[in-house]
Amino acid sequence: MTSAWFSSPDTAAKSLGEAGYLADEATATTAYLAGALEKPLLVEGPAGVGKTELAKAVARATGAELVRLQCYEGLDEARALYEWNYKKQLLRIQAAGDQAWEETHDDIFTDEFLLTRPLLTAIRRSEPTVLLVDEVDKTDVEVEGLLLEVLSDFQVTIPELGTVAAVRRPFVVLTSNATRELSEAVKRRCLYLHLDYPDAEREREIVLSQVPGVEDTLAAQLVEFVGRMRALELKKSPSIAESVDWARTLVALQIGSLDEAAVARTLGVVLKHASDHDRAVRELKLAASRS
C-alpha cells in the first residue's frame, strides 16, 4: 500500500527533517500512518512543543498547500465551512430589475456568491492540501459535530448546491492543548499522537537547527538546564519554544556560556510565572551552594 503522502516511516522522518522539523520515531511513524490510512491526526501536548509546526512541516515536506482553521470560542458554521455572500446577492437582486424571480433565484445561489471557509476550501481543492484545525479544544461542542461530518466522509452538504465531496482527501491535523476533553466520537475518527518534551539529544539538535549562530556547547548547557527546570514542580514547564527563544536571547546578548549571572539575567525568557521564577532561583541557588 503506497501512500500519496509518505512512502514509509523512514522517509517521513527524512522529508520532515528536510523541511526543518526533527521528528522522533513515533511522530514520523504516526505522520506516515495518518497519510497511509487517510485518517485525521489529532496531536495533543503541552503548549510550545511543535504541534502546529508539525502540520506546517508536513505541508512543506510534501509540497502541499496549508489551509488553516484557527478555532476559538464562538466559532460557527459560517466561519468554518461556508457562507453566502448576501450583500452581493442583494445587489444582484436589485440589479435584476424585472427579471423573473425563478431566474434570479437560480442565479444567486451559485459559486459566484459562495464564500468558502477553510473546511470547504480544503475539501474542494484538487491539489494536495494539509488542513490544520488548530486548538480544536477551544471550540464549542457544536463545532465538533460539524467536524465529525467533514472528518469522517470528507464531504459537505450545501442545501442549495448539493453535496460537495472531496476530490482528493486532505491530510488533516487537529491540535489540542487538552484544556477540554474532546468527544469520544471525534477521537475515534482520528489517529492520536501525544507530543511531549523531547529528550536532551533531540532538543539540542532542534535548538541548533532553529537558531543559527548558537555554539554547540552553549546549546548543550542550555538544554541540560532546561531539562533540570522541567524536573522541578513548576506551574508551566519551559517547552521547546522557550528553549529556542532562550537560545536566541543568548545569541542576541552575545553570551557565550550559561553561567549563573547569565541565567539570572535571562530567566524571564523561559519562566513566565513569578512563583516559578522564585522556585527555580531557589532550587538552583541551592545547587550552587552545595557544589
Binding site: 500500500m1 501512500s3 514509509s8 516511516p9 520515531e25 513515533a26 511513524t29 504516526t30 506516515y32 500512518l33 495518518a34 497511509a36 490510512l37 489529532l42 495533543e44 487538552a178 469520544e184 477521537k187 475515534r188 482520528c190 489517529l191 492520536y192 499522537l193 501525544h194
Partner: peptide, 22 residues
C-alpha cells in the same frame, strides 16, 4: 501498512490507533 521489523513501529501503530488519552 507498516513493516514488522521494528518493535517500536508496531508499538506506535497500536498507540496511534488505540490510545486516545495520554
Amino acid at each position: 501498512s507498516v513493516t514488522w521489523d521494528s518493535r517500536e513501529v508496531v508499538r506506535t501503530a497500536y498507540a496511534a490507533t488505540l490510545v486516545k488519552r495520554q
